[in-house]
Design a protein around this nucleic acid. Structure first.
Length: 226
DNA sequence: CCAGACGTTGTT
DNA sequence: GTCTGG
DNA sequence: CCAGACGTTGTT
DNA sequence: GTCTGG
């Protein structure tokens, strides 16, 4: 799964990396501990085909939700069940979420848990497959643009610590994933495979990342096993 | 994902 | 145990 | 027809 | 809103 990640790359650099046409967001504070309900960068396409970088709130709140409190339970969307869950967003509102790394927690046999950071060996941003939607309050005085990260089974690197991981899309697949006119879920589903583990590295980090109140570059410092 | 709350009335 | 907030 | 869910992970 | 279960 993916319930916490790193976002420190500024929007201009993300726009370049993701070949965005227009930046429609202010810079967010760099964060080494992005948590559900936080604002995050995501790239989506307009119906006219322009690729935009914007700010979304993490945790997909569907239009029918009475309140946005549902967000914290919809931070991920399983690739395997996208046909029935998140169907609307899967067919028409897909996005890309850049991240400089993400955390997974390993459950050890003794009941303790260990936080790990996973990032690209080349330190470039990784690009998660995402879904988004719009929510309006009953009085329509509040509008939320929210998103979820698509997950799949773990690859060989993550397998020993966890059985799920976010879907990372290669540049060659970005266009199809973003294409709002492409609603053929069969071909979209083919993109939702575990990433090649050779491009990734993974190491243990401090349990300080456990609390969303902690932040800073020290959260991604490797620690050694005792 | 993890952390932290989880309850109401009335009185200060 | 389960839900909410971050 | 109406009621109730609508989500994932992990643990048992 | 829309789907599933009863």
């Amino acid at each position: 799964m993916c319930g916490r990640f790193v976002s420190t790359t500024p929007p201009a650099a993300l726009a370049r990396h993701l070949r965005v046409d227009e930046v429609r967001t202010e810079a967010l504070e760099p964060s080494w501990n992005v948590a559900p309900t936080d604002p995050v960068y995501a790239v989506s396409e307009t119906t006219e085909g322009s690729r935009l970088l914007g700010t979304y709130r993490w945790g997909l709140v569907p239009p029918w939700a009475p309140a946005p409190s549902i967000a914290s339970r919809r931070i991920n969307a399983r690739a395997e069940t996208l046909g029935s869950k998140f169907r609307g967003p899967f067919e028409r509102r897909r996005c890309l979420l850049p991240a400089d790394g993400f955390y997974e927690w390993e459950r050890r046999p003794d009941g303790t848990k260990q936080a790990w950071l996973i990032r690209r060996r080349d330190r470039a941003p990784m690009v998660f497959a995402g879904l988004w939607d719009l929510w309006r309050s009953a009085q329509a005085d509040e509008v939320l643009r929210t998103c979820a990260i698509v997950t799949t089974r773990a690859n060989l690197l993550l397998g020993p610590i966890h059985d799920r991981m976010p879907v990372m899309l290669a540049p060659v697949d970005w266009e199809l994933w973003l294409d709002r006119h492409h609603t053929d879920t069969v071909s979209l589903r083919r993109l939702l495979e575990p990433a090649d583990d050779r491009q990734l590295e993974m190491f243990e980090v401090s349990s300080r990342v456990n609390s969303v109140r902690n932040n800073g570059g020290d959260l991604v410092t490797p620690i050694s096993r005792r």
